[in-house]
Simulated scan of single mutants.
Amino acid sequence: MDSQITEIAADIYRIHTPVQLPGGFTFSFNQYLLVDEEPLLFHTGPRKLFAPVSAALARVMPLARLRHVALSHVEADECGAMNEFLAAAPQAAPLCGRIAAMTSMEDLAERAPRALADGELLCLGRHTVQWFDTPHLPHGWECGLLMDTTTRTFFCGDLFTQPGAGDQPLTDADILGPSEAFRQAMDYFAHVPHTPATLERLATQAPRTLACMHGSAWSGDGGALLRDLAGCLAAGRP
């Protein structure tokens, strides 16, 4: 198994691994590396993907330089290889929201997490990232998402999940259609009352690149696409 790494925005790299699942179904797992004075990795991938993912990362910078290993919420594809990355990067710490730190990461991670408050800014050097609490969007009480305010790249986690190999690193084609078709077949959204307001708050940040966890990253008017997603969700559950 081989992971590919591609720069999708200034200093931001998509690490991409397509995986064959039972039944001939192909699915992709992406991590995002932000290279700066304090490099940040968003998602670790499952523990079993640590070897190819870390090898791809090492083609851009030494693994030991990592300072922040970030996650949206607690699932294997988000943080399964957390402790493997912490062992390889002695100065790195988990980065997550306060709920994830309290409920899981203070116990699961081999190193104490840095917990960000809703709206908190973190300067990495040339880039500054901002944390947004997004409870139950798309799922998980502890869920949160991260925006690079410098490039307007939105690390949007499981939002806009696309099926298939996701071989195109960055696209401006339709991703809402494929992601909604996937959600119709296997809905993974919590559908809580505050979802529309949360999506509108994210849309007002005017992201220009959506760093999707599954499928291609996307370039365009991210605010409009987030509002389109809100419209699809408001139209009814599958």
Rank of each mutant, 00 (worst) to 15 (best):
L86I: 12
G24R: 02
A230T: 09
F154M: 08
A55I: 06
A64H: 09
L49F: 13
D174Y: 15
L95I: 12
F42V: 08
C156A: 04
P193K: 12
Q91I: 13
T149E: 15
W131I: 07
Y188M: 10
E84Y: 02
Y13T: 02
Y13H: 14
P113D: 11
F50Y: 12
A173N: 15
R227L: 10
P113W: 10
D77M: 10
L226Q: 08
Q20E: 15
V74M: 12
A181Y: 04
C156L: 08
Y32W: 00
A112T: 11
M213R: 07
L226D: 00
R237H: 09
H139K: 00
R201T: 00
E142Q: 10
W141A: 13
A235V: 13
D158L: 05
L34I: 14
A101H: 11
T17A: 09
A117L: 09
A64G: 15
C96G: 15
C143V: 07
Q130H: 06
G24I: 13
L124V: 05
S179C: 12
D221G: 03
C79T: 10
E120S: 06
F154G: 06
L86T: 00
P22Q: 05
L145Q: 14
F27H: 11
A203H: 02
L176K: 03
D36C: 10
T17G: 09
A64V: 14
G164D: 00
A64D: 15
D221Y: 04
P138N: 14
L229R: 00
I8G: 02
P169M: 04
Q91S: 13
G24H: 08
A235H: 07
